[in-house]
Simulated assay, not measured.
Amino acid sequence: MAITAGMVKELREMTGAGMMDCKKALTETNGDMDAAIEFLRKNGQAKAEKKAGRIAAEGIVKTVVKDDKVAAIVEVNSETDFVAKNADFQAFVEAVANQAADSDAADMDAFMAETWAADTTKTVKDALVEKVAVIGENLNIRRFEKVVTDGCVVSYIHGGGRIGVLVEADTDVVNEDIKTCLKNVAMQVAAMYPKYVSREEVSEEYMNHEKEILLAQAKKENEESNKPKPDNIIEKMIIGRLNKELKEVCLLDQTYVQDSDLTVAKYVEKVAKENNANVTVKRFVRFETGEGLEKKQEDFAAEVAAQMATNLN
């Protein structure tokens, strides 16, 4: 497979590795982007897999919270940022979020087939098709998630809808201090992108995969070192590095961004104690607009040239 400059650029943006390293990785993996990321990580040339380079689709994320007990988060995509900022589009997305909060649908197909709350003569799909006709762009209700709790659920929206977060907690006290605490935790989730709430959630498959990556890195470092380390030291290094990584991917282990002397767990514990409450962060949902989607690359100069050639013919 031919390796293009665009592929090298994309891999560089996702990993931070050098241009020649990226080109070699793509060549070695026959252009497979995920395999190339793995190749770079094993060779110590990429610190971690980063998907941000692929996030390009437009649209917004909206959240709705009702009585601190029920919440929904939705992502609705548009073709352009111009439409994403349109008041009519944003009102539609808010209506979709309210629909999701009241919905019992287990998946997107069931959700799209539901009666549209704003007009019971339509389904959600009908309402979407109608909105596409009015706005003049292809729109897509991409995903939704609903949270129902006996404790408390809060939401946070960042960047006008670029990122949305729900945080659910078991708590025997629900007041402004507790809700502010959970809102701050939601901001942490938006900023630091954890994968798990705590280490208890981390799968054995994930642990084994990361150990494999770290072992490959350690062996490469050992081969290049003037003072190679024995296997038992390498094993300790891997354990240390894995623990460091878990502190980055597990929310409660992360350093709390608003007070670097605390972890998120210690911050929640502190607020709970101040309010004579028992608070346990149960789960979070984080949507980032366009996450994992590829946006069509427009070359307007080529498009104009092609149009002119067509007209001349």
Rank of each mutant, 00 (worst) to 15 (best):
Leu251Phe: 06
Leu251Thr: 09
Lys236Ser: 14
Ser260Asp: 15
Val264Gly: 06
Lys282Asn: 15
Ala265Trp: 00
Lys282Thr: 15
Lys195Ser: 13
Ser198Met: 00
Ile238Arg: 07
Val304Trp: 03
Leu252Gly: 02
Ile234His: 03
Gln217Met: 10
Ala218Trp: 01
Phe300Met: 11
Glu200Pro: 03
Gln307Ala: 15
Glu248Gln: 15
Leu214Thr: 04
Lys244Gln: 09
Glu269Ile: 04
Pro194Ser: 10
Glu235Ile: 11
Ala306Arg: 10
Asn275Gly: 04
Val249Phe: 03
Lys296Phe: 04
Lys227Ile: 10
Lys236Arg: 15
Ile234Glu: 05
Tyr206Lys: 06
Glu303Phe: 03
Glu205Asp: 12
Asn275Tyr: 01
Asp253Thr: 08
Asn226Tyr: 02
Met308Gly: 00
Lys236Asn: 14
Ala306Cys: 05
Phe287Thr: 06
Lys282Leu: 09
Phe300Trp: 11
Arg286Thr: 09
Leu242Gly: 08
Leu293Glu: 12
Glu303Leu: 10
Arg199Leu: 05
Ala302Ile: 06
Val279Asn: 00
Asp231Ser: 13
Glu274Asn: 12
Lys220Pro: 02
Ala218Met: 11
Leu293Tyr: 12
Glu298Gly: 02
Gln297Tyr: 02
Glu274Arg: 04
Gln217Thr: 11
Ala305Asp: 14
Phe300Cys: 08
Gly292Met: 09
Lys270Glu: 14
Glu201Trp: 00
Gly292Ser: 12
Gly240Arg: 11
Glu204Cys: 03
Glu210Arg: 11
Glu205Lys: 12
Val271Ile: 15
Thr255Pro: 00
Glu200Phe: 04
Ser203Gly: 11
Arg241Ile: 07
Ser198Ile: 01
Asp259Arg: 00
Phe284Ser: 01
Glu221His: 02
Val268Arg: 05
Asn278Thr: 15
Val268Gln: 09
Glu235Ala: 14
Tyr206Phe: 15
Thr280Ser: 11
Val281Glu: 04
Val268Asn: 06
Met308Asp: 11
Val279Ile: 13
Tyr267Leu: 06
Glu200Trp: 01
Ala272Val: 06
Lys266Tyr: 03
Leu214Lys: 13
Ala265Asp: 14
Ile213Gly: 00
Lys219Trp: 02
Glu235Trp: 00
Thr255Gly: 01
Leu242His: 01
Asn232Ile: 13
Arg199Lys: 14
Val264Lys: 05
Glu205Trp: 00
Asp231Lys: 13
Ile238Gly: 09
Arg286Met: 09
Ala306Trp: 02
Ala277Tyr: 05
Ala301Phe: 01
Ala309Glu: 15
Ala265Lys: 14
Lys211Leu: 07
Gln254Trp: 04
Val268Cys: 08
Met237Glu: 07
Ala277Lys: 10
Asp261Ile: 02
Glu200His: 08
Ala302Glu: 14
Arg241Met: 03
Ile239Pro: 00
Val197Ile: 15
Leu242Asn: 07
Ala216Val: 11
Arg286Cys: 11
Ser198Arg: 07
Lys273Leu: 12
